[in-house]
């Protein structure tokens, strides 16, 4: 995760109030609808929570200099990942696409040139996210990029709770006594990147860096994490951030 600046810490102790308040203040219709759709309460068992896995590919790692290129969304629950309801958009980043990231994302110039601006797909995207708990792998990309991009287009940003499968992995492998002991011994930390994490649960190695496949991979990873380290009745508040 080299090159990523420390972010503002999002420490919302009361997401429900925050969301309701934003719902009242919002001027943009789509954003108003998004915030007015209630999320499951913080003590809801995870097995009852409707979720949506979200992944974005960007032209770089800084939301102020780089832009979103593609977005993949897959609704799911603890039982089922509903691939049939998936959505995937390529959007025009307005900022130039670096050659390096072309190879990285398998998205070509012409595809991007013909793609709409994020503004066109934003209503649809927010509707898919509304009422669902968003699940990402590494929230410090998705959250700031989405916030900045929406603020630039609609005059107000969005902030909402997420489950971050990477931070769940970090809790297991970076923050335990054992992990600190390893660090003290000078051992390299256990990788908590998407594919490395998946491997620990016996999940297959997907071709990475496609927003939809990564969203699917993230959904599968969360199912595996809950099955191995939590319980279906673990309350949402123990998982989100």
């Amino acid at each position: 995760m080299l090159g990523i600046r420390p972010r503002q810490r999002v420490t919302q102790s009361d997401w429900a109030n925050y969301m309701a308040q934003r719902g009242q203040q919002a001027k943009d219709d789509a954003i108003k609808r998004f915030f007015s759709t209630p999320l499951p309460a913080s003590d809801t068992p995870i097995s009852d929570v409707p979720m949506v896995a979200l992944d974005m590919e960007t032209t770089g790692l800084d939301e102020d200099r780089h832009a979103i290129v593609s977005i993949g969304v897959v609704p799911f629950t603890l039982d089922r990942i509903k691939l049939a309801e998936r959505r995937y958009w390529v959007v025009n980043p307005t900022r130039p696409l670096a050659e390096a990231s072309i190879a990285f994302h398998h998205i070509t110039h012409s595809e991007v040139a013909e793609a709409p601006d994020l503004d066109i797909v934003l209503d649809e995207l927010l509707e898919m996210l509304a009422g669902h708990l968003v699940v990402v792998h590494f929230r410090n990309i998705e959250r700031p990029f989405l916030d900045t991009a929406i603020k630039a287009r609609r005059g107000e940003g969005v902030m909402f709770p997420m489950i971050d499968t990477m931070s769940l992995e970090a809790r297991l492998h970076r923050q335990t006594l054992w992990a600190r002991f390893r660090r003290w011994l000078g051992r390299p930390p256990v990788s908590i990147r998407l594919n490395a994490s998946r491997e620990r649960y016996g999940l297959p190695n997907y071709q990475g860096h496609h927003a939809l496949i990564d969203a699917l991979a993230t959904a599968e990873l969360l199912q595996a994490q809950i099955a191995n380290h939590y319980r279906p009745d673990t309350p949402l508040k123990d998982l989100w951030c």
Binding site: D79, I81, L83, A84, A227
Partner: peptide, 13 residues
């Protein structure tokens, strides 16, 4: 491929 649903099962489940 369009219609599959996916689920993870831990060893022994």
């Amino acid at each position: 491929a369009e219609r599959v649903e996916v689920s993870y099962f831990k060893t022994g489940s």
